[in-house]
Amino acid sequence: MKRIAIAAAILALGIAAVTAQGGDPIAQRKEAMKAVGQQTGLGARMARGQAPFDLAQAQRIFATYAEAAGRYGSLFPDNSQTGGETAALPAIWANKADFEARIAKWGQDARTEGAKVTDLDTFRAAFGAVTRNCGSCHETYRRPQS
């Protein structure tokens, strides 16, 4: 009987883990965007001289962007257009190819520009180039935040 209870508990944990991985795409994209926002805030402070430049941290910023870009494609399925207080505009699904191309460009730019960073000056140039991608996508595909 004890073995059955242990097996049931292990099975329940496994199901919970699979469910969490395949869970709510709106919540997952909000979490990914939160991580991007935190890294962007730190990058902006470094670029403005409000935080010391740290090469390892600069690389983490670009790695976070590239990782998020790689995940975003799967976080906008058709059934996630509404609910969860999403800020995603219907234009994402109406112009899916353009949206996905912008995300892919952002990820590629994060990898390419991030690889060029060696000091504060190269960080500023790379950070500006990559974050411009964020603005262009938000203007078209994200509901303005009040």
Rank of each mutant, 00 (worst) to 15 (best):
V117N: 05
V117A: 11
V117Q: 13
V117G: 06
V117R: 01
V117S: 11
T118N: 10
T118E: 15
T118I: 12
D119L: 06
D119Y: 09
L120N: 02
L120F: 01
L120T: 03
L120P: 03
L120Q: 09
D121T: 13
T122E: 15
F123N: 01
F123K: 00
R124A: 06
R124C: 02
R124F: 03
R124L: 04
R124H: 07
A125E: 06
A126F: 08
F127C: 13
F127Y: 12
G128W: 15
G128P: 14
G128C: 14
G128R: 15
G128A: 13
A129D: 08
A129P: 00
A129E: 12
A129I: 13
V130Q: 07
T131W: 01
T131L: 09
T131I: 08
T131K: 15
T131M: 10
R132M: 00
R132S: 03
R132D: 00
N133R: 14
N133K: 02
N133E: 10
C134I: 14
G135M: 12
S136E: 08
C137I: 10
C137F: 01
C137A: 10
H138E: 03
E139G: 09
E139N: 12
E139T: 07
T140I: 06
T140L: 14
T140Y: 09
Y141E: 04
Y141G: 06
Y141Q: 03
R142M: 05
R142D: 01
R142F: 02
R142Y: 00
R143A: 05
R143I: 07
R143G: 00
P144E: 13
P144Y: 12
Q145V: 11
Q145W: 04
S146W: 02
S146D: 15
